[in-house]
Design a protein around this nucleic acid. Structure first.
Lengths: 200, 200
DNA sequence: GTCTATAATAAGATAGAC
DNA sequence: GTCTATCTTATTATAGAC
């Protein structure tokens, strides 16, 4: 039974790593990256700080693991399906995010921290946003063509779309009863849609 | 000369407090609130940590001072002139903010941190956003009336406007060469404007 | 693979000298 | 009003036992 349902030793180590990343993500959501200690992560997975450092050689390496896990999730949920991407699909992601406030909170906190100097997540978010702007521009062009309301182009609207999604998350996390994440996102898309304007 | 150009002892104490708040704001921008130590603040104003604690009895009290100073600035710049507020005025504020990336960065970091549990700035940002949504809705109604593009009302557009301004700041701080804060803000306003749609 | 033990810093805050 | 000195606690990370 040493090679049970989880497979061999390597697979067990992978499961441990995943559990540590999970715990770290939750704690980052609750206390931020700077506010998260290795001791707290270790407690959550039933290890000591030294035990955690066996899987991730430093706290920064653990953060990298958290960010990479998010990237894999994003890829599976969105970028991997970009060939058939539609704005409705983007709205589905928003709805799915609304079911995972812990994940949204972790990455809202990290994005905020990332603008500080020499933050270990700064490069990650810089590249992530640049890529998101390019992806969103392509999405908007596929959906609406070259000419958007207000005389905007997809390239000029893309940062706005990204900003709205990000900014709404902050407001939602601070006032979940007042903000409907998915509905507000749809509201913004309706501003971009040439066909739906002036509806009552 | 003991009562020189700065006034009496009370005024000198106020000047000290202001200098400490200034230093703290800069350091929060550079390293976040959790990453800012009293020792670093003290260094910047030529005091020891104990000296700083003479003016602010705790680190949290110092943060409150930073937030109150921002509130006073906001009031002078925006809320205090709400009677004659126009969207063009809001755009002037964005342009002014673009000249003060340090302030923008400090409050972007703090807003991100504030969504964590028991953060000392959480209540501040919760109330600030709620008030901003109400103010923006009134502003949009005064400017455009009850009916906005996409079938939106001022109340539904206000959180979007707030989200765009916030989200653009994050993108701008991470890629100042790629994002034109004021221009992007105007782009969004043009989406809300009933008269300017479909311009080329 | 996980631990104990410990190193090496650093934090916020207090007491009391000056 | 500001300092020195100190308390107390927490941090990341390493070395080496088991």
């Amino acid at each position: 039974m040493t090679r049970g349902q989880q497979g061999g030793r390597a697979a067990q180590a992978e499961a441990r790593r995943a559990a540590i990343i999970d715990a770290a993500t939750t704690l980052i959501a609750e206390r931020g990256y700077q506010g998260t200690s290795l001791a707290a992560v270790a407690d959550r997975v039933g290890l000591t700080p030294a035990g955690v450092l066996h899987y991730f050689p430093s706290k920064d390496a653990l953060l990298s693991g958290v960010l990479e896990a998010r990237d894999r999730w994003d890829f599976a949920a969105f970028v991997g399906r970009l060939t058939d991407a539609r704005l409705t699909h983007l709205e589905q992601i928003v709805e799915y995010n609304a079911e995972r406030p812990d994940l949204v909170q972790a990455f809202t906190v990290l994005a905020g921290e990332s603008v500080t100097e020499d933050h270990p997540a700064r490069e990650f978010f810089t590249e992530r946003y640049a890529k998101a702007r390019a992806d969103f521009a392509a999405l908007l062009r596929a959906e609406f063509g070259d000419h958007l309301p207000g005389g905007l182009t997809p390239e000029r609207a893309a940062p706005l779309l990204l900003a709205v999604m990000d900014g709404l998350q902050v407001q939602w996390l601070l006032a979940r009863d007042d903000i409907d994440l998915a509905a507000a996102c749809r509201d913004f898309v309706s501003l971009l849609s040439p066909t739906q304007r002036e509806q009552t």
